[in-house]
């Protein structure tokens, strides 16, 4: 069943269109920045965007920062909201289940497809952004840090002002990619659960987005500080902590933990609901 889901994922033109859009937006931003040489000042605009003029190899992280607030969650919510509800809507759900595909197995296959979609999307964004960045901005001239015991080359400047070696930069970018992918899996889990509740994939996607928007509003609200650490978007921006020197693990750890809990809880809820639901679509 997992293979079937992956085939469906790959053969759906819509999925590729969403990935292309997600990769296209950072490309567009990069072209504008490269042509005008006007990057937002540091600390303003999308994170790290100010840095890319001096080092294109930071652009994967900046590109993720560009798509993270709206584009990426929307794409993921739409995709995940379609998981079960889309099958129900097209009428294929009943045929799949009478094939028979066990309900838990179908859910599991959907989860794998979701994970593959999220990871592929995030990685593709990072890769195209890397290509864009090095092509349009060039990688930072390799310079040596003086004064330290070993002279090593510097690929980019961290948020703390110190240099990052190429290896460090790659590892940290991978860390940020993993963190963002896991954050998106949290969104996907919510949408997947809603997808088992309703037969409308749009409804499921909008429901998940509504949950995210609610969370983002509550995060900024001082009076809601008691539930702050439980909110799904609370630690979304913590991926930037990979680019501090040293890496600030506290929020990253918590972000991973919160997303793991969201994924676990909503998958369990999806399982509890879907496995005993009357399929009347």
């Amino acid at each position: 069943m997992i293979r079937v889901e992956l085939v469906k994922l790959a053969r759906r033109p819509r999925n590729w269109a969403s990935v292309a859009l997600l990769c296209g937006l950072p490309l567009l931003v990069a072209v504008f920045v490269a042509v005008t040489h006007l990057a937002p000042p540091p600390g303003q605009g999308p994170a790290l965007l100010s840095e890319v003029l001096s080092s294109g190899s930071l652009y994967p992280a900046a590109a993720l920062a560009i798509v993270l607030p709206v584009f990426l969650p929307v794409a993921v919510a739409v995709f995940a909201g379609d998981s079960i509800a889309g099958e129900a809507d097209s009428g294929m759900l009943r045929y799949l289940l009478t094939r028979p595909v066990g309900r838990t197995r179908l859910l599991w296959a959907k989860l794998v497809a979701l994970t593959v979609y999220v990871v592929t999307t995030v990685v593709l964004i990072a890769l195209t952004a890397y290509a864009t960045g090095t092509l349009l901005f060039g990688s930072q001239p390799v310079a040596a840090i003086r004064g330290s015991l070993t002279t090593s080359s510097v690929a980019a400047t961290s948020l703390s002002g110190s240099g990052l070696s190429p290896v460090q930069l790659i590892l940290r970018t991978l860390g940020a990619v993993a963190f963002i992918a896991v954050s998106m899996l949290g969104v996907a889990a919510i949408a997947l659960f809603l997808s088992t509740v309703t037969d409308s994939s749009l409804g499921a996607a909008l429901g998940a987005l509504a949950a995210l928007i609610t969370s983002e509003v509550l995060v900024t609200l001082n009076s809601a500080s008691a539930i702050n650490p439980y909110l799904p978007t609370r630690y979304w921006l913590a991926w930037i902590d990979f680019f501090r020197q040293p890496i600030l693990w506290r929020n990253i750890d918590r972000g991973f933990a919160v997303q793991a809990i969201y994924v676990g809880v909503f998958l369990a809820a999806a399982w509890a609901h879907f496995a005993t639901k009357d399929i009347t679509s």
Partner: peptide, 29 residues
């Protein structure tokens, strides 16, 4: 001490008699 913001940081270093102030926004130490 690093003062953390969502998109950068402001740091203070105390190194013997000298104080270093790092401001990410100005890219200035």
């Amino acid at each position: 001490s690093d003062t953390l913001t969502a998109v950068g940081e402001d740091d203070v270093y105390q190194v013997c008699g000298a104080t270093y102030l790092w401001n990410y926004s100005y890219n200035l130490l």
